[in-house]
């Protein structure tokens, strides 16, 4: 570092702390919208944090000022990609939230059903899937031998979907 006044300042550190803290609180919620807002806040805070890793100064465009008074271009390039990625991520999570609303009527993230089932099984000292667990090859009386689906080699023109 060259000049001591070109690094982070107290208020910027404060901004990072507040953004990250609020982001985390929202992230731990159950509503997808809130989680997403938390991600955005967290993203802003972390972007700022990364930016503080380099010195501030003039715009990093050669010819606009002396080179050694320029701000650090490397964290800027990193943060720029991060901003755009966050946008793509936002769009994706919004689509998930919409889908969740479309299917269940809200955008809450419920507990994983499969995981709950496994916990119950563990509590009851049961084995896992039916296909394993001490049950030998012929242990299942319900086992049927269905005719294997004959793979049709060439499909006739007529029976395709119309």
């Amino acid at each position: 570092m060259t000049a001591s006044d070109a690094g982070p300042t107290m208020v910027l550190v404060l901004a990072v702390a507040v953004l990250v803290g609020c982001g985390v609180i929202l992230l731990l919620e159950r509503s997808l919208t809130r989680i997403l807002l938390g991600v955005i806040l967290l993203g802003n805070g972390v972007n700022l944090l990364i930016l503080l890793g380099g010195r501030s100064g003039g715009a990093p465009v050669v010819g606009t000022g002396p080179v050694d008074e320029m701000s650090d271009p490397l964290p800027q390039a990193m943060v720029l990609t991060a901003i755009v990625i966050t946008f793509g991520f936002t769009a994706f999570l919004l689509a998930v939230a919409y889908r969740s609303w479309y299917l269940t009527g809200d955008d809450e993230v419920p507990d994983d059903l499969e995981d709950r089932q496994i916990i119950r099984r563990a509590g009851r000292n049961e084995a896992g899937a039916v296909d394993h667990g001490g049950e030998g090859p012929n242990g299942d009386p319900e086992q049927v031998d269905p005719e294997p689906a004959r793979r049709r080699l060439r499909r006739g023109r007529g029976d395709g979907p119309r």
């Binding site: 731990l28 159950r30 507990d111 995981d115 896992g128 899937a129």
Partner: peptide, 28 residues
């Protein structure tokens, strides 16, 4: 079969103990 069964049981116990299914809990 005994080994497979034991293994299955172990997997269930470990999964049940570590994977509680709650997203906030994992993130936390």
């Amino acid at each position: 079969e005994w080994v497979v069964d034991r293994f299955d049981r172990l997997a269930i116990e470990v999964t049940g103990a570590t994977q509680r299914g709650s997203l906030p809990q994992y993130l936390g």
